[in-house]
Design a protein around this nucleic acid. Sequence first.
DNA 1: TCTTGCCTTGACGTCGGCGTCAACCCGTAC
DNA 2: GTACGGGTTGACGCCGACGTCAAGGCAAGA
Lengths: 142, 142
Amino acid sequence: MRIGELAARADTTTRTLRYYESRGLLPARRDELGHRAYDEHDLRALQQIRTLRDFGFELEETRPFVECLRAGHPEGDSCPASLAVYRRKLDELDALIGELAAVRDKVAGQLTRAERARDELAAEALVPGGPEPVCELGGRDL
Amino acid sequence: MRIGELAARADTTTRTLRYYESRGLLPARRDELGHRAYDEHDLRALQQIRTLRDFGFELEETRPFVECLRAGHPEGDSCPASLAVYRRKLDELDALIGELAAVRDKVAGQLTRAERARDELAAEALVPGGPEPVCELGGRDL
DNA sequence: TCTTGCCTTGACGTCGGCGTCAACCCGTAC
DNA sequence: GTACGGGTTGACGCCGACGTCAAGGCAAGA
C-alpha cells in the first residue's frame, strides 16, 4: 500500500509517516514510481508507535518496540529492551504523579488560605466602624 | 535597584526579566542612563511569578496575581481573578493526574503481560524437545 | 486536453520560556 | 589609556513532533 492508505488505516497523516521515516523509525521501500510502499508489517509497527505515543512515550522510546517487531518477534514488547522502557516509564510516571500530587496539595492549600483571608476581610467590613472595602479588581463574588 | 541585582535576589537571570518585560508582565522604570530601575514591589511581583512558575503555572496564568499586587493588595491571590486561576489549575491538575494514573496502570498491565509471555516462552524452552530460543535482541536476562 | 488526485522533496512555521551570542554604551578602578 | 563589570537592543537557537505551504511529477477519468 502507499503512504496515504497507511496513514488512513493508522488514523494519522502522511506528514507523520515521512517524519518517522526521516527519524529512521519507519523506513519504506519504493515502487517503480518512487512512491513509498508499505505492507502489513509496517502497519503493525506504526500502530505500535501510535499506541505508545498515545501513552505519552517519546518517539525515541518507541524504537526498541519497533526494532523488536522487525526482528520477527510476535509483539513489540517481546524483547528485554522494550521491557526496560516500560519499567523506566513506570518510574517516570510514578515520580511525575507524585510531584503533581504535591503541587496539587500546595495549590489547594493556597486557595484555602486565600479564601479564608478574603472571608475575614469581608467579615471585618461588616463591623460598624470597620475599614472600607478596597478591592477594585473583578468584583468580590467569585 | 538594577536588573542584575533584582535577578540575583530572585534567583533568576536578567534574560528572564527582560522577557517578562517584553510580555508586559514586569514593566520597568528607567534611570537617567536608560537602565531598568526596580524597587521592592517589583521584587515581590517577581517572586510571585517565580513561585507560580515553580508550581507549573504558565506565564500568562501568573498575570492576575501580578496585577493584583500592583493594584495594592496585600497578596497576589487577594483578588478573585487569582482565585479563579487557582481553581482552574486544581481542575487541570486533577484531570492530568487522573490521566497519568490511568496510563500508569495500562503500562503496568502491559509490562506484567509481556513478562508473563516471556516467562512462558522460557518455560517452554525447558521442555525436552521444545522449540529453540529465538530472541537475538539484547539478551534475555533483563 | 484538462482536471483531479495522489505522490515527491524541501523548507519554513508552531508552541513557551527562555539561552546565547553580537555589537555597542557607560562609569569606575588601576 | 585601558581593562572590567555592569548595562542596552536585536536577533538567532533550542526542544519535539509534527503542520503547512510551494513547486513539481505521474496516471486516470471526462
